[in-house]
Design a protein around this nucleic acid. Structure first.
Length: 492
RNA sequence: GCCCUCAUCGUCUAGUGGCCUAGGACGCUGCCCUUUCAAGGCAGAGAUCAGGGGUUCGAAUCCCCUUGAGGGCGCCA
């Protein structure tokens, strides 16, 4: 690969959002390109006329940009693209006749042929084969049609598809960069369709044509394409083209070991984004699914993955997606955020939770920051700090029972209220000093004072460091909340 | 049914014939820190390296078989 310029691509079909598996494939291609100072290309494979949508395409673009997987060449949106090998959307390439040119060439050379079988006939053929315990693949019946037969089909108005004439002898092999030597008997391969009756190319055909024309050096894709590879290699050979390197990535499975799907929870990048994961988390976690460094490094600084990635570190066996570890990692990344960064990221979630940020006594940035080490998801933020922004707070039943409904609590709260009322400069330091002094003078244990105060001003038994929290809530609010806790029969 | 791939703690993984009485990470348990919850620190439990045969002085590492899991056999990609 040293003597060949690295050009790799991610080629999704726009039939849905960018999924975890697709994102991982995109990421590995991207990292490989960065590592070898190559070119990362985004090509849209929309040859499925029924399921491809513009919305899906835009959604994929958005997710990739969010993940920071910027492409050097490819479609930028429906109408624009960058790079000298375009168009990068297959439907546009089809319109230009690119695929037809090569399919005609192969037919002319006798390396491909028209097939007049209808989908119904093919289905019937497969069923029959299954019943007779034969492989359900195409039997090549249209390879040797007579002139009369062809005329008859044409009279019936049948539109032919184009099939590739697969070699019947020998074998096809390649040295997979992840799996090593892979070998298939040609007689087990089949005459796959290159061009549908509609004139549209199929995946296996368009993929080869484009990978060649776009001068791909390496094809890095999922394991599920291993059995497509010998088909494609024979196509390269028939066209007299050089064959790129192949690297097949292992699959990502759900927690139960089956293919990752909806019933495992969120599966698309967009969903994880909405749930409150950072893009750096997704990028880092995905990189570790099927790849690792020799020292099992877990957290990577910016640019480190691009520098350390290699195909040699890729795993052959499938990896189970573990949301628990993902969430741990997200907490790690949240803790690395600066106060400003954290606040920026928190904003959409605060808005969604209808929190009025103008209601706090201090800068909301400071409030969000106070609980930084506790957030695992950005969506955790509102519910951990909402009481700083509310006129009316809710009291957690259990906390009230356990902490407030106890002897002495009423006296303690009434006493501490007086103490707080007399603090002129209501700062963390002063609050702490006077609270401790109060406890000492009255002969209470500090915890006997701290806990009821916490519950009465925040409504819950768990929260930020106490005195800073009290400062941030503000003197007046603190006093009125203590009053309320006492008067509203929250205590015995 | 046929073809292909894969197989190390629950999970992600290190390991490429002797450094392995198998290392790291998540999770789990305990302790420390501490006004709570976290975070952090420390300690621990957890893998007869899928099973069985070989090869070798020596195997998680090489070979064979079995089993299990996954993928493919579409005018889907």
């Amino acid at each position: 690969m040293e003597n060949k310029k690295v050009r790799v691509r991610f080629a999704p079909s726009p039939t849905g959002h960018l999924h975890i598996g697709g994102a991982r494939t995109a990421l590995f291609n991207y990292l490989f390109a960065k590592k070898y100072k190559g070119t990362f290309i985004l090509r849209i494979e929309d040859t499925d006329e029924l399921r491809s949508t513009k919305e899906s395409m835009n959604s994929i673009f958005e997710s990739m940009r969010w993940l920071g997987l910027d492409w050097d060449e490819g479609a930028m949106d429906e109408f624009n693209e960058k790079g000298d090998y375009g168009p990068y959307i297959q439907s546009k390439r089809e319109a230009l006749g690119i695929y037809k040119k090569y399919s005609d060439e192969l037919i002319q050379k006798g390396l491909a042929y028209h097939c007049y079988c209808t989908p119904e006939e093919l289905e019937e053929m497969r069923k029959k084969a299954q019943l007779e315990k034969r492989p359900p693949r195409y039997d090549g019946r249209c390879r040797h049609l007579t002139k009369e037969q062809i005329e008859e089909y044409k009279r019936q108005g049948r539109k032919p598809a184009v099939r590739f004439k697969m070699p019947e002898e020998g074998h096809t092999s390649w040295n997979d960069l992840i799996h090593g030597e892979l070998k298939f008997e040609n007689k087990l391969l089949y005459d796959f369709i290159m061009v549908k009756a509609s004139g549209y190319p199929t995946y296996n055909f368009a993929c080869v044509i484009d990978d060649h024309l776009m001068e791909m050096s390496h094809i890095i894709r999922g394991d599920d394409h291993i059995s497509n590879t010998p088909l494609q290699i024979n196509l390269y050979k028939a066209l007299g083209w050089g064959i790129p390197e192949f690297a097949h990535l292992s699959m990502i499975l759900g927690p139960d070991g089956s293919r990752l799907s909806k019933r495992h929870g969120a599966t698309s990048v967009g969903e994880y984004r909405r749930l409150g994961y950072l893009s750096v988390t997704i990028k880092n976690y995905l990189a570790l699914l099927g790849w690792s460094t020799k020292d099992s490094q877990q957290i990577f600084e910016k640019g480190e993955l691009e520098e350390k990635f290699s195909l040699e570190g890729c795993q052959k066996n499938p990896a189970i997606f573990d949301p628990v570890k993902l969430t741990w990692m997200n907490g790690e990344y949240i803790r690395k955020l600066s106060k400003e960064e954290l606040y920026e990221l928190a904003l959409p979630y605060m808005k969604e939770a209808n929190i009025d940020l103008s209601k706090s006594k201090v800068d909301p940035k400071d409030i969000v920051f106070i609980e930084q080490e506790k957030y695992k998801l950005l969506s955790d933020i509102p519910k951990l700090v909402d009481f700083f922004f509310k006129d009316e707070i809710e009291y957690d039943k259990e906390s009230v029972e356990k902490v407030l409904k106890k002897d002495k609590v009423k006296d303690i709260l009434l006493g501490i209220k007086e103490v707080y009322s007399s603090i002129a400069d209501f700062t963390e330091k002063n609050i702490e000093e006077s609270t401790r002094r109060f406890a000492k003078e009255k002969g209470y244990k500090t915890s006997e004072v701290f806990h009821p105060v916490r519950v009465s001003v925040s409504g819950r038994a768990q929260g930020p460091t106490l005195f800073k929290m009290i400062e941030y809530i503000g003197k007046e609010t603190v006093i009125s909340r203590i009053d309320k806790a006492v008067s509203e029969a929250k205590i015995v």
